[in-house]
Design a protein around this nucleic acid. Sequence first.
DNA 1: TTGTCGGCCGATCGCCGACAA
DNA 2: TTGTCGGCGATCGGCCGACAA
Lengths: 226, 226
Amino acid sequence: IDPKIWRACAGASVQIPALFSRVYYFPQGHAEHCCPSSSVISSAVASPIPCVVSSISLLADPITDEVFAHLSLHPVAQDQFQFQFPFPPSSRFGEERDDEKVVTFAKVLTASDANNGGGFSVPRYCADSVFPPLDFQVDPPVQKLFITDVHGVVWDFRHIYRGTPRRHLLTTGWSKFVNNKKLICGDSVVFMRKSVHEMFIGVRRAPSSNKGGGGGSYYGDEYYAG
Amino acid sequence: IDPKIWRACAGASVQIPALFSRVYYFPQGHAEHCCPSSSVISSAVASPIPCVVSSISLLADPITDEVFAHLSLHPVAQDQFQFQFPFPPSSRFGEERDDEKVVTFAKVLTASDANNGGGFSVPRYCADSVFPPLDFQVDPPVQKLFITDVHGVVWDFRHIYRGTPRRHLLTTGWSKFVNNKKLICGDSVVFMRKSVHEMFIGVRRAPSSNKGGGGGSYYGDEYYAG
DNA sequence: TTGTCGGCCGATCGCCGACAA
DNA sequence: TTGTCGGCGATCGGCCGACAA
């Protein structure tokens, strides 16, 4: 994935350490993250281990589209830790020179946005700063947008400026996207424009308060809460 | 899974060895089955290994509904192989006493059967011998069938006898089943009746000549052959 | 007996402006 | 400016008998 697109999808609050930078690996934290139920951790490995970030991969979940980073940590001796790797972590990974700025806009989906059969209300700022400009000579102003997701799949949306009062909307193509990505109210979409004609779309899932998996049973194609 | 239902789904041509029977394990065949591309097999383990079937599990794929058996093989010494396990493999696994015969009918789906929006043409013999009898006093004769799949999920179908000339059809509920199981023309469905009111439905996939996975690319929700 | 087709009816999808927050 | 709603037109699913293999 393009590092700029990855960063835009992840959001500004997400930071990852620089390549070859010095970090501490906390086995206990890792274990609890992987398996929150079993709290029995061997105290022999409970102390933090000095490491160096030996590789970084920016990835996206093939199903949920959520972006994540895969870091390889190489353990180093404690006494060498402070002096062996004097790489200045000046530039964080994924923060490239802004010779080609990526314009970004994220919106939390409303009920109307996520509703099946509905469209997507495009905030004014998003339409003005991220989307290509419409031709306001024709009425109503309409264009097709071809937008690429994190997997390189291209989606096309009908972008129209209509209604009283006028507002920007995504209509045709939107519900197909919502269904395919299984987006629900509270999730976010991220629109990005890299160059004049390169647009990308990303997804951020809402913090799962209690997603599925609970009791209940399937009866044919219908789901019955138990 | 009920062994009788498992056998009916698998079909008469499928046979599995008896529990505790003596078999030979062929590592090379196993390896080639798992990974057909790499043909480099260590000759040290290329000879068949005498084993005893120590356990048998009748299972069904949670996605495709295809039934399969899981056999555990326990290796035994060559000299003990012939005498150590004199269990007579008189009754094959899954071939129980027919104190309660399972009536079965399988049909290969036609284009019309698998077509979206269409129904299912029920062969006369299936309706007569497997389905519960219709009440021919009313016109048209109709009933709802509640049929359980290999996972215990119950599906209901509308069974009607109509048209000129008259024929048995499954209408409402059928296309939902086809879509959920992703059945296509050439696949088979198996109808089973264990007791008077217990009906089951199974699936046999068509021998995959060249199923998906090949070249091509996704463009939005559409698939374009490459 | 049963596979395929066109007709047709009803349900759903999804685009629309009207409001109001 | 933009979230939600009811209206309504187009599309599609899916039930039907007609016909022929």
